[in-house]
Structure formats: structure tokens, C-alpha cells
């Protein structure tokens, strides 16, 4: 287990960050090249002022029709995504690893707050899974990959919470936590999680069409 832990915080961490960063850059550049090559008659309408205006609405809870009409999902989605970024980046335990091995340090969230937010993420993942399996509209669309990615995120946070509370064998849970997190990072460029990379552009494109060609709002 000790060896696996060493592997997880060492080579695998490099690999996960490498796959995530290089993979993301590659996907973005490849998609851009494809868009320029094949969607020229559409890319020409890209208008960042319109895109930004629309994105501001879509990044505001209840700022767009879809959000207003789905209040439960909206709250869950916003809280989930905010915590998804906030907790891992500003978690003391993570900062300590960077501080110890790379000498980088930045302010951390209070442990209690981070713990509470992480539990919230686990609960929201459970809610998402519940929706996937029991809300007919979502169940109709659900594929194994959808269940896999939400489970991966949920497990990453769940093992993190358990490790923080020293429930179960700490080395086993911490190692599992790190491996899940690394799998999640590496999966971002190559699964539905890639909406993290493309959402701004797909929304920005359609907002440009609506704003500059169709003179109508798209939120």
C-alpha cells in the first residue's frame, strides 16, 4: 500500500496532470482547427461581446430560462461546480503536498468549511445519481459513461471526506482518494467531462449567432 501511495503521489500525479493539461490543450487546439477547417461559415459569426454577455447570464444562477425552469437542478449544479473547483484547489491537505514537495503555497480554506463543502459535493453527486436512475427524463438519456463520471467524482470526494475524518484505514482511503482524483483529471479531456473545456465555446458560439445574426437573446 505504501508503494502504491508513493506511486499515486509521485509518477501517477505527474501523469494525471500531464494528461489533463496536455490533453486539454490538444483537444482545444484540435477542435479549433476542425472548426476553422469545417465550420468556417459559422465561425465567421463569432462575436465575443455577444458571447460574454450570454455567458454572464448563464453563469448567473437563474439568469437563463433553462435555469429558471429547473430550479432544483440549477441550485445543485451551481453549488456542485463551485465546490468542485473551490475545495480541491483551496484544501489545506492539497496545498501541504505542493508546499512540501514543490515549495508552492497559497491560502487555504478553513478545514471545517472545506469539509462541509466536500460533503455537499458527495450529497449532490448522490442526487445526480438518483436523478439518473429514477427521473424518467434523465434515465432515458443516461449511458454507462454518465454513471461512471458522476460516480468517479462522487467517489473522489467521498474517499476524501472519509480520509479527513479518519474513518477506515487512512492509508488505503487516502490512496484511493488520490487515484480517483487522478482518474478524474485524466478523464476530463476524453469524456463528457470535456464540457469543462468546451462549454464556454459552444455557448459562446451560439450566443454569437443569436446576438450578431439573429438579434435575439439566447438565455
Amino acid at each position: 500500500m505504501h508503494a502504491l501511495y508513493d506511486l499515486a503521489v509521485g509518477p501517477l500525479a505527474w501523469l494525471a496532470f500531464g494528461v489533463f493539461i496536455i490533453g486539454s490543450i490538444y483537444r482545444l487546439l484540435a477542435m479549433r482547427a476542425l472548426a476553422l477547417k469545417k465550420d468556417g461559415a459559422f465561425m465567421t459569426y463569432i462575436s465575443w461581446p455577444h458571447a460574454i454577455k450570454s455567458l454572464v447570464h448563464w453563469f448567473t444562477p437563474f439568469g437563463a430560462l433553462g435555469w429558471k425552469e429547473n430550479p432544483g437542478v440549477t441550485i445543485a449544479t451551481f453549488v456542485f461546480h463551485i465546490c468542485l473547483f473551490l475545495v480541491p484547489i483551496f484544501l489545506m491537505g492539497h496545498i501541504v503536498l505542493f508546499d512540501t514537495f514543490r515549495g508552492w503555497s497559497w491560502p487555504a480554506l478553513p478545514d471545517g468549511v472545506a469539509d462541509a463543502l466536500a460533503i455537499v459535493v458527495v450529497l449532490i453527486c448522490a442526487y445526480f445519481l438518483w436523478r439518473r436512475l429514477s427521473v424518467p427524463e434523465v434515465r432515458f438519456l443516461t449511458t454507462p459513461q454518465d454513471v461512471f463520471v458522476v460516480s468517479l467524482v462522487g467517489l473522489t470526494f467521498l474517499t476524501g471526506v472519509l480520509a479527513y475524518h479518519r474513518i477506515g484505514d487512512n492509508l488505503v482511503l487516502t490512496t484511493l482518494h488520490i487515484l480517483c482524483g487522478e482518474a478524474m483529471l485524466a478523464a476530463i479531456p476524453f469524456t463528457r467531462l470535456s464540457h469543462m473545456l468546451f462549454a464556454v465555446f459552444s455557448r459562446g458560439y451560439i450566443a454569437s449567432e443569436f446576438g450578431s445574426v439573429r438579434f435575439a437573446k439566447d438565455w
Partner: peptide, 15 residues
Amino acid sequence: GCHMDQKKGPVTCGD
């Protein structure tokens, strides 16, 4: 650092 070098001893936060 030492625990990781020696592959012995606690390495996780909670240990």
C-alpha cells in the same frame, strides 16, 4: 520525506 524514502511510517494526513 523520510517516511517516503524509507517506505515506512505514516505518510497520510490522518495517520
